[in-house]
Simulated assay, not measured.
Amino acid sequence: MSLSKRLMVEGAGTAWLVFAGCGSLVLNGAAPAPGYGVLEVALAFGLALATATYALERSSGAHFNPVVTVGFAVANRFPIRDLVPYIAAQIVGAVAGAALLAYVASGRPGFDLAASEFGANGFGDHSPSDYQLHSALAIEVVMSFALVTMYLLMSRKGVSRAVAPMVKGACLALIYLVALPVTNGAVNPARSTGPALFVGDWALDQLWLFWAAPMAGGIAAGVLFAFVWGKRGTSRDRDNAVEIQGEAA
């Protein structure tokens, strides 16, 4: 499969993740608050990731997240030359998913995109439970580190392809159970960018955190994985890239 086709797959998978996950926040008419809605939204994101990974992993590696792509590149498990195209495709997919969600949500009488906050990530006054910057920073770094580490471990040689997508989905659902009250659940700059572009204003002002913090966590995970496992952990992503591009690992 050519790079262009893999980019289309990455974009489509990211669009599905944003539409299904953020849709569980937006389309029920209520943002999650402590004790209400958190489990349902976390499961929606986790199941969206698991289903997309089952369907598309063999085609593109099924990252659907710039942090995962960067983490794999840092761990030397993904070709550097494909890094920027993959991230661009994920952002385009996230925007497309958010655009479809905005179109569907606008069909509800009285729907106000800005008032709903449209599943955008935030801190301070825009945190679902009013958590401040330092809390949002910590949760995004730690949870992104955990997510990328799980991806890397599941990509090692010998891990069952039948099990890995569900493990990744379960990991994302657990992360969102913790992160939703703090930041509305991010750990994915593309997922954060899509809704923020439609909300504008405060969402764009705070978007920097949802790029910087997850990237820091993802890079740390990649460095640690390369240090501990090195070349012993062969990635399906790297294998896939080798098969597609006809190069030696």
Rank of each mutant, 00 (worst) to 15 (best):
S2V: 04
S2A: 05
L3V: 14
L3K: 06
K5S: 08
R6F: 00
R6Q: 09
M8T: 05
E10V: 07
E10R: 06
G11V: 06
A15I: 05
F19W: 05
F19H: 11
G21T: 14
S24E: 11
L25T: 03
L27Q: 15
N28A: 10
N28G: 14
G29V: 13
P34E: 01
P34W: 01
V41T: 15
V41P: 03
V41E: 04
A44M: 13
A44H: 09
G46M: 07
G46S: 10
L49H: 03
T51R: 03
T53A: 13
T53M: 08
Y54G: 12
A55K: 04
L56G: 06
L56Y: 03
E57H: 10
R58G: 14
S59R: 10
A62H: 12
A62P: 12
F64A: 13
N65T: 14
V68S: 11
F72Y: 09
F72T: 11
A73Y: 02
A75V: 09
Y86W: 00
A88F: 01
Q90M: 05
V95K: 09
A98R: 13
A98T: 12
Y103T: 15
A105K: 11
S106N: 14
G107R: 11
P109K: 07
P109D: 07
G110Y: 01
L113H: 05
S116I: 02
A120V: 06
A120W: 00
A120N: 04
G122Q: 04
F123E: 03
G124P: 05
D125K: 14
H126P: 10
S129R: 01
Q132S: 14
L133N: 12
S135A: 15
A136F: 02
E140F: 04
V148I: 05
T149A: 07
L152P: 03
V159M: 14
S160K: 08
A162E: 09
P165F: 02
M166T: 09
M166P: 02
A170L: 10
L174N: 02
L177Q: 01
A179V: 04
T183C: 05
N184E: 02
P189Q: 13
P195H: 06
A196W: 04
L197G: 11
L197D: 08
A203H: 08
L204T: 14
Q206R: 07
L207E: 08
W211D: 06
W211R: 10
V223M: 04
V223G: 02
F225E: 06
W229K: 08
G230D: 00
G230P: 05
K231L: 01
R232T: 03
G233E: 00
G233L: 00
R238N: 04
N240A: 12
E243I: 10
G246A: 13
G246R: 13
